[in-house]
Amino acid sequence: MTSGSIRTNRAGPHGDRIRPGHRRTTGIRRAVAASSALVLALAAGLAQAAPKPWQLNMERGVTTWSGEPYFLNNVALGVCVVIGLLVFGAMFIAMFRFRKSRGAVAEKWAHNTTVEIIWTAIPVVILVVLAWMSTGGLVSFANTTGSQMTVKVTGYQWKWRYDYVDYQGKAVSKVGYMSKLDALSDKTRQLDSGMDPYAVKTGDENTYLLDVDKPLVLPIHTKIRFVITSDDVIHSWWVPAFGWKMDAIPGLVNTAWTNINEAGTYRGQCAELCGQDHGFMPIVVKAVSQEDFAKWLAAQEQASAAPAAADGPATAQVAPPAPGGKG
């Protein structure tokens, strides 16, 4: 359906061409710099989804579904901009033409049924179109059937736990781990740490507060079902590149799904206030090819089967520990 047109829409890596006017001039040079850096990263073949400086619009995302919110966002924004231009345009014309200082004399009319019917009806039509477009995306999001893999996500104050439940129809045995803020970010973020957030980097990318000790590893081109819950308070699991967030609620299990198109590292954060360190429980997803994922999963299962072996060396094969690991 819409996904084809979305891809061609993808003029810029973060689509900032869509957003008109406001305050662009100040940021334009840095936006260009950031865009070109991103183009280079894409050319290197590894998608990296993390916020960019001066980013103006939502990202397109990397999954089969993530184009829905992006597309709707752009359409709705376009509709609002057009209506805004008309309404505010009329206001400014009125403010210019009908000034007392220009000798304007007030008219007496205060009612016009035809006009009122028109400007009630037109918004209704626009809303029906928008509603129709949103409903399609919503229905496809609600359909978690046909998943090839299940991952259980559990929120804790203030970290995430990932448990692999099944993959390609087979139950996964005892693969699960905690994922929390990387040590360098954690040290840097302390009040009066004297450390520079700009110095927290993974490669060339600044990952301050957006890196974890052990990322969630997922295969691409696989429909993955998430079952999401919490062990204490309400959290919300959000990776913007996937196009959705879902609350992790104690006592309830929510479901959602994704199907990632491109290998890469995708970063997100907890999106529901969950206590003092709500801002410090990021989410990192490392999407790898199905072959790499199968190997990684086998190694993980093996490691957890061997009683004495800690999961440390096993994870290191695919998910190297965050830089500056020792805190």
Partner: peptide, 17 residues
């Protein structure tokens, strides 16, 4: 739109400007 959650006291440098 760039992905900054509300109610956080600190943020990645991409949100700094």
């Amino acid at each position: 739109l760039a992905g900054m959650p509300r109610r956080i006291p600190d943020y990645n440098v991409a949100f700094a400007d």
